[in-house]
């Protein structure tokens, strides 16, 4: 199973400007599989991505507009992207000036395969 995830993640990190991608457990924020550039802390990215997704799920539930499909947190130096599933989430970190549209599309396709 983990090797399947690894192949999915490698597909994402091949895209230009993607510095790392992870499959994360939403329940506890731990890494299930990761493909990240040296110097990036996968554990920290996983925890932050899962926490962000958890808060967004709670917020959208209270707002009554359904489960969020995609989260995009844009910073000055890059973007944190999260595609939450039911038990797992796909998390990616992109550098500045990355075409987010293509990455978003690929993440949504990949997240569908996560289940």
């Amino acid at each position: 199973m983990t090797s399947q995830f690894q192949a999915m993640l490698d597909g994402l990190t091949r895209l230009r400007g993607v510095r790392g991608a992870l499959v994360v457990s939403l329940e506890d924020g731990l890494v299930v599989a990761e493909s990240v550039m040296g110097g990036l802390k996968g554990g920290a990215l996983a925890a932050i991505g899962a926490t962000l997704a958890g808060r967004a799920v709670e917020l959208s539930g209270r707002g009554g507009f359904g489960r969020p499909r995609f989260l995009h947190l844009q910073g000055d130096d890059g973007a944190l992207l999260v595609a939450p599933g039911h038990d797992l989430a796909l998390v990616a970190l992109a550098g500045r000036d990355v075409p987010i549209g293509m990455l978003r599309l690929e993440m949504l396709r990949t997240a569908e395969r996560l289940g």
Binding site: V24, S25, E27, D28, G29, L30, V31, K41, G43, A44, A46, A47, I48, A50, T51, G54
Partner: peptide
């Protein structure tokens, strides 16, 4: 209100 992953990160 938090997650095991976050606790681990901040524990380090």
């Amino acid at each position: 209100e938090t997650k095991l992953g976050l606790v681990r990160v901040f524990f380090e």
